[in-house]
Amino acid sequence: MLNIYVCEDNLKQRMLITDYIKNIILIEDYDLSLELSTDNPHEILDHIEANKNVGLYFLDIDLNYDIDGLSLARQIRRHDPRGFIVFITAHSEMCYMTFTYKVEAMDFIIKDDQDNLHSRIHQCIQSAYSRYSSTNNHTGKIFVTKIGDKEYCIPLSDIIYIETSVSPHKIILHTAYSTLEFKGQIKVTLPILGSDFVLCHRSTIVNKNHVKEIDLKGRTLTLTGGHICPIAVRYMPSIHKCFQYKN
């Protein structure tokens, strides 16, 4: 999922930008999340340090804080090298500074024209989502699925496990932040996921990197988030081997 962040010290401007973004997400029906809208740059940094998803950042330059938008962008780039940074400011003369700070900004938007502001924000969201969704951008390390008219691009590292749904011909994908049910089959999905994924049951695929504990006697796996999955007898040797290798 692509997360969106807004850092703007002017409350009126921040609410305006936030409303624009919410409306665009609703209209486009993208797999996006407006994670945080704040005047505090440290809240942005704390949040992205704790949440490793790729972000789209709309930043004011003059934040009236101990760090400005340019310094914030530089620190964001350390945590999120693939993130998309957009500056929204009243200071057009500051545009050249984005090159000095080498933060590779996606756009530089002047606040004065509100119609233009909305249009440019919309263009940035469309462009960032398109680039984020591209398999080339993720070098193949994403799982793409479609539910209705909405396409989801989930980093493989975010997937905790996948199980067969009670609904015919459907499977359920679990991450730390979402649960998605869509058309699919376990046996068809497993080869797509790669070597980090293994069957623990004919109806369940687990991500080896999310295995926290194996109970050989009870034949269960405890995964990230406290999820517990059963292990079928036939898969015990391979699961045990994976767990030993992981630890």
Rank of each mutant, 00 (worst) to 15 (best):
M1V: 10
Y5K: 14
L11T: 12
Q13R: 14
R14A: 11
L26F: 14
L32P: 01
L34P: 04
L34E: 03
S37T: 01
S37N: 05
H42F: 12
L45W: 07
I48V: 12
K52G: 15
I61D: 01
Y65F: 12
D66P: 07
I67M: 07
I67N: 01
I67Y: 03
L70Y: 00
L72C: 01
R74E: 15
Q75R: 11
I76G: 01
R77P: 05
R82L: 07
F84Q: 00
T89W: 01
A90L: 07
M94I: 01
C95S: 12
M97H: 05
Y101Q: 08
V103R: 00
V103Q: 01
E104M: 06
E104D: 15
F108K: 01
I110C: 07
D112F: 10
Q114S: 03
D115W: 13
L117G: 12
H118T: 14
Q126A: 07
Q126W: 14
Y129E: 01
S130F: 12
Y132G: 04
T139L: 15
G140V: 06
I142S: 03
F143G: 02
K146C: 13
G148R: 03
C153S: 11
I154V: 14
S157L: 07
D158A: 13
I160S: 04
I160Q: 11
E163W: 06
E163M: 05
K170I: 09
I171W: 10
I172Q: 11
I172D: 07
H174S: 02
T179G: 08
T179L: 07
L180F: 09
K183T: 10
I186T: 03
L193V: 10
L193N: 05
G194E: 07
S195C: 06
S195M: 05
D196T: 10
D196G: 15
D196A: 03
F197T: 01
L199W: 07
C200I: 07
R202Y: 13
S203C: 06
N207C: 05
K208G: 12
V211I: 15
K212A: 06
L216F: 14
L216N: 15
L216V: 13
G218R: 13
G218A: 10
L221E: 04
T222W: 09
L223K: 03
C229T: 10
I231Y: 02
I231N: 04
I231E: 00
M236S: 09
M236A: 09
C242T: 05
K246H: 08
N247G: 10
